[in-house]
Design a protein around this nucleic acid. Structure first.
Length: 448
RNA sequence: CGGAGCGUAGCGCAGCCUGGUAGCGCACCAGUCUGGGGGACUGGGGGUCGCAGGUUCAAAUCCUGUCGCUCCGACCA
């Protein structure tokens, strides 16, 4: 993409309503624009990030055996009356009345919808297990939206729902999502830590929040330091096999958010020099809830002995739009955002330092064409802005690599490569610079 | 919902107390000079001062109401 033809409304000053760094940088880099409290438009740069995050989530859900569907944003109140949640949910649920005076709502979650889909379509235990997920906009009328997209009212969420015949089957479904989440967040360059979460009325140990550490995190978290560098399951993990060893490795060491924290247990089980107390951001939440919805909504299948069996369910959320902010919280510096390659809106920023100069234009255009031909997402700054402004903008929007072409370099046949994360710059022959950038990007794209 | 603030150009702000032609920086447009980390000069364009009432000869400024937004708290992916 040529910057001269793109829509990238960057701001030099920080809008005063933005309090935390991810919100400030998302506004400054022209990723999002607030439309109302907690409601945002996603501008081109932000949309590219959102799309890349969603695609990683999708790939890992599919790998773990979940099947994508798409459920509506508008839901019927009658479904929620079946589960008893229409009255129970409270003011967080946005209720709407249509022209026929029917009660609707903008879905804050989709247990009822998916349970209805399942019960109307599945009759036999032979059809289990199943895990259906969708990536869809949700709305929760938060009392106080804040922190930009980290705590918006409208947000993009991946929510998966598992259906099993037995509690043991549900545990296996839970484990598949657990492993999928470890991979999902790692692929975005995040170190996530599964932490014990409140299981509500069901009890047991099947609820975890996936937390990433960031100074501006919303809650205090406590864990064993080994978990920060925990091993990520490989791409060829057998999701049909026994995942217990992986789960065991991640859950045997202490990790809890402040509401689940027990200082005595923490100090008894974790050596003093391994205790981590930090701020965390919740980016995923998985839990098993048994028959909470299947029972009142009549989601049953016929078992091998002819008896009707109420299915065991679990649900698994990932805050997709929240992740855009969370990644920035975890990866930025004074100059702006530092995108990990897999979620970067563009992988390379090509800077023409003297647009309009025939030789420089020719060299930059040549690199632009070759980068595109190599399948690299490249943003080519072909504007006639001054060098300083171009560098500042490129640092702000955080593309992982900058390829800098100026008249001096062109004379000697050289271009400069800058790695955004380290700030390291190196001048090298055009072809070498091109190869270096391509190799760097390709090697960081996918976690194997 | 309780507490505290803020609404003046795209962004950041001054002006309001003490009523009298709506300003500054950045951004934007034209031109000249510049040209490797947000350059300089000259000349421009852009505003129902959130909205509605009221007081007044006169309201961004005073009064009343209302809407929006932000921060702290309870709530949450």
């Amino acid at each position: 993409m040529r910057l001269s033809r793109y829509f990238l409304p960057v701001l030099r000053d920080t809008p005063k309503e933005a309090e935390i760094v991810s919100h400030q940088l998302m506004l400054r880099s022209g990723m999002v624009k607030q439309s109302a409290a907690g409601i945002y438009s996603w501008l081109p740069l932000g949309l590219r990030v959102l799309t890349k995050i969603a695609e990683i989530v999708r790939q890992e859900q599919n790998r773990a055996g979940a099947i994508e569907i798409l459920m509506p944003t508008m839901q019927s109140a009658d479904l929620w009356r079946e589960s008893g949640r229409y009255e129970a949910y409270g003011k967080e649920m946005l209720r709407i009345v249509d022209r026929q005076e029917r009660d609707l709502l903008f879905g804050p979650t989709a247990e009822e919808v998916v349970t209805a889909i399942f019960r109307d379509s599945v009759r036999s235990y032979r059809d289990l297990p199943k895990n259906l997920y969708n990536i869809q906009w949700k709305f929760r009328d938060e009392i106080r939206p804040r922190f930009g997209v980290m705590r918006g009212r409208e947000f993009l969420m991946k929510d998966a729902y598992s259906f099993d015949l037995t509690a043991d089957g549900a545990r296996k479904a839970y484990q598949r999502m657990f492993v999928a989440y470890l991979r999902t967040f790692a692929r975005m360059g995040l170190k996530s830590i599964p932490m014990k979460a409140d299981t509500g009325p069901i009890g047991g140990d099947l609820s975890h929040e996936f937390i990433i550490l960031a100074e501006t995190g919303e809650s205090q978290v406590f864990c064993h330091k080994d978990l920060i560098e925990g091993a990520i399951p490989a791409a060829d993990t057998d999701f049909d096999g026994d995942l217990s060893p992986i789960i065991e490795a991640w859950t045997s060491k202490y990790a809890a958010t402040e509401d689940m924290h027990d200082a005595a247990t923490f100090e008894a089980n974790v050596p003093a020099d391994s205790r981590v107390s930090a701020r965390g951001i919740e980016v995923g939440h998985i839990f098993y809830f048994g028959t909470k919805y299947s029972e009142p909504m009549g989601a049953r299948v016929q078992g091998p002995d002819g008896q009707m069996i109420t299915v065991q369910m679990g649900s698994y959320g990932v805050g997709v739009s929240r992740l855009a902010g969370a990644i920035i919280e975890a990866s930025h510096d004074a100059g702006g955002i530092i995108w990990p390659v897999p979620v970067a809106p563009f992988e390379v920023g090509l800077i023409n330092l003297k647009a309009g100069d025939a030789d420089t234009d020719r060299a930059a255009t040549d690199l632009y064409v070759k980068l595109q031909a190599a399948g690299i997402d490249v943003l080519y700054d072909d504007t006639d802005e001054r060098a300083g402004g171009k560098f500042a903008t490129m640092d702000l929007i955080g593309l992982p690599y900058q390829l800098i072409v100026g008249p001096k370099g062109v004379k000697s046949g050289e271009a400069e490569v800058k790695a955004r994360r380290t700030g390291a710059r190196a001048s090298m022959p055009m072809d070498a610079a091109l190869a270096h950038v391509i190799d760097s990007v390709v090697s960081q794209r996918v976690l194997v």
